[in-house]
């Protein structure tokens, strides 16, 4: 696997963990899928929505690994997840955000709805970032009618998520990763409670080993939690760093010198 991946989450100060994440790779470990879902709703409903999306993804992955058009595959998968969350039925709020990234060797394909984010980081700089489906982001873009039409509504309200609308339009993007690049997926419990610039720089300064990365991820989560001790949201962070597999010749040489 050319990617080193670590993930962790924390319940924060909430009674229930409504964040869910998934890290899964194909049989020969060349491709990987990362998912973060942040559920919202009444008692148990938010967690159920997030879990439903994750379960649907896990059960419908087989064709992703060999897909000719991963972007389109992800789009359909997210739309199916919306149907799955909608079918939870009843009147209680049961919604979830969803951000997922498919790594095919060094090619990245991602899609999202809601305000859980993906960052692509290179040399401590953000190369790409998802744009939240929130009123605040709409307003920042204020070139669109809708931004004006919803003046006065809270910044963190979402206009798109899974489980609210019959039809959704997931936002999709892709990039080519380079040696040392990191992909970071997180729920708003992280990006809303810490200075992301600091988190990104700390991650970029971390040794590229599983143990060191996990330690940094846990420290970031802990920083997010302690920033709001009384009312911290659920926090989830998944980080994956791209390292080219050393070639066979180099392995051979290093084996000799061991």
């Amino acid at each position: 696997m050319p990617w080193i991946t670590v993930a962790d989450s924390d319940i924060g100060a909430r009674e229930e963990q409504q964040d869910r994440y998934l890290v899964v790779c194909n049989d020969d470990k060349t491709n990987q899928l990362l998912v973060v879902a942040d559920g919202a709703g009444g008692h148990t409903k938010g967690a159920l929505a997030a879990q439903t999306a994750i379960t649907h993804i896990r059960e419908n992955l087989t064709d992703l690994w060999t897909s000719e058009d991963p972007q389109e595959f992800l789009r359909k998968l997210i739309i199916q997840c919306n149907q799955a969350v909608l079918s939870l039925g009843d009147d209680d709020l049961a919604c979830t955000t969803l951000v997922m990234v498919f790594m095919r060797s060094d090619e990245l394909f991602w899609g999202h709805v809601g305000d859980s984010r993906l960052y692509l980081i290179r040399g401590g700089q953000v190369v790409a970032k998802t744009c939240d489906h929130s009123i605040g982001e709409l307003r920042k873009r204020n070139d669109h009618q809708l931004g004006h039409q919803v003046i006065g509504t809270a910044e963190n309200e979402l206009y798109m998520c899974l489980g609210a609308l019959a039809n959704i339009s997931p936002e999709l993007d892709s990039s080519a990763a380079r040696e040392g690049d990191s992909v970071l997926l997180c729920s708003d419990g992280l990006w809303g409670q810490v200075d992301m610039a600091k988190t990104i720089s700390e991650l970029s300064d971390t040794d590229l080993s599983h143990g060191s990365l996990l330690k940094t991820v846990q420290q970031s989560i802990s920083a997010a939690r302690t920033s709001m001790p009384e009312k911290s949201d659920n926090i989830t962070l998944v980080v994956s760093t791209y390292l080219k597999a050393p070639n066979i010749f180099k392995r051979f040489i290093s084996a000799i010198f061991k």
């Binding site: 942040d38 919202a40 709020l93 919604c95 955000t97 305000d115 009123i135 709409l138 669109h144 009618q145 809708l146 919803v150 509504t153 809270a154 963190n156 309200e157 979402l158 206009y159 798109m160 998520c161 609210a164 609308l165 019959a166 039809n167 959704i168 339009s169 936002e171 708003d188 809303g192 409670q193 709001m228 009312k231 949201d233």
Partner: peptide
């Protein structure tokens, strides 16, 4: 008010959502 809590704002007019995305 729990200002940090995620809330959902429903755009019921799907055409608006399309305009936004296409």
């Amino acid at each position: 008010t729990e200002s940090d809590k995620t809330k959902f704002f429903k755009i019921t007019d799907e055409k608006q959502l399309d305009d936004l995305r296409n």
